[in-house]
Design a protein around this nucleic acid. Structure first.
Lengths: 214, 214
DNA sequence: GATGCTTTGTGTACATATAACACTGTTCTT
DNA sequence: AAGAACAGTGTTATATGTACACAAAGCATC
């Protein structure tokens, strides 16, 4: 069943960069490609847009198919379309960013993916296509756009210590923060509340657990 | 000369939102469409991406072809691709934003355009396709991203008064500003210098003219 | 059970940035 | 000569951000 046009059309794909905080560090979901091109290399999950499907819906579907994840909010990063980025044909990809709390992340490799797993953003493997460049832009966007409020509500697990939250924010911003100033700002934001539980975790004073305030 | 694929491909276009300051107000370049669909309606200049052409290059070329303008810096706004946005076929458009100083704007309607002119952003005509929505996003992006420095260097004519500059900034931010605070910030930015000339312009004290400092 | 290691938890002083605010100067018009 | 219209100019108060140090609690070890 061939599809014919009177001028050449590029293919259009969507890719979804899913960020999470693992072990206090910024991480991203990648899949291992099962097929040519770049078989065996790691890549951002994504795939072709259906002809009657919105871009965002395609992003949601592809993420689900390749990783088992159901994305919450999807924010568009932009379109990447250098003519030589895919050896099969001209492919323009529209990239979305999603955030996931790591305690809700159940990765399952899907049809086109040999495997799906989390990588720390500062320890990436070699990536397929121009995905390293895309990820760079995605991290930059995350840094620009994500504030403490957003980290609390969209990246942290159900309960966490304030130090864990601070590590998460630092891992995104890339800069260390003063503990007292960080907590002062948290009080001003009114974004967290103590759960009453504590975490005992080594030879030191236990930390109060908090949850995001709704 | 037909082009055939084994799965359906959307068409990909680029559109370029050119902002300028006219009469102290934020304005945008639109073309009047010569052909179906939406013939006679005003639209953001743009057109199809060549199969071996980068997105940015296509944007530059289309802007030139339809308005005679040579864009300086082009910033990508994003991709818009609702399935029903064009009655001809599925079309995904990648939108760029460009800024132009109004004294360098020489609009010439090109091949596919019956006319090209500047419209105030708050007095837009009815627009083709989903261009009203796109323009809304473009204005929002402009508000988020453009600071006083950027206005001075990329939107103001060669010489201008400080009041004109302030009007321009207000017209982008949407909020009125205090004159003395505005000028204090300008001093801190070190972004303008007096030309030595003044503008006499009505029954009042003449205003010193300034230019952007390089 | 005392000592020491490790991480939690807390407040103040200073610097910087932002916001509010009013009058005089110059030109043109009448 | 008087008045209308816009140009130009500093100070004060408030809010925000930054720098900085020590006691508290638990666990491990001797």
């Amino acid at each position: 069943m061939p599809y014919t046009y009177d001028h050449p059309h590029p293919a259009v794909t969507v890719d979804v960069v899913v960020f999470a905080i693992s072990d206090g560090r910024l991480a991203v979901v990648l899949i291992r490609r099962a097929q040519w091109p770049h078989a065996g290399k790691w890549a951002i999950p994504g795939g072709f847009v259906g002809i009657d499907e919105s871009l965002k819906r395609a992003a949601w579907r592809e993420l689900r198919e390749e990783t088992g994840l159901k994305a919450g909010h999807l924010e568009q990063l932009g379109a990447f379309g250098r003519p030589d980025r895919d050896p099969r044909e001209r492919v323009i990809t529209v990239v979305y960013i999603s955030l996931a709390a790591v305690d809700r992340l159940r990765l399952e490799a899907g049809s086109d993916a040999a495997d799906a797993k989390l990588f720390f953003v500062d320890e990436l493997p070699e990536l397929a296509f121009d995905h390293a460049r895309i990820l760079g832009h995605a991290v930059e966007r995350l840094r620009d756009r994500l504030d403490t409020q957003g980290v609390v509500q969209r990246l942290m697990p159900q309960s966490f210590t304030l130090t864990e939250l601070q590590r998460a924010c630092e891992s995104i911003s890339g800069a260390p923060t003063d503990k007292r100033n960080f907590r002062k700002k948290l009080r001003a934001l009114d974004a967290v509340e103590p759960t009453g539980e504590v975490r005992r975790d080594g030879p030191h004073r236990p930390a109060q657990l908090y949850r995001a305030k709704r």
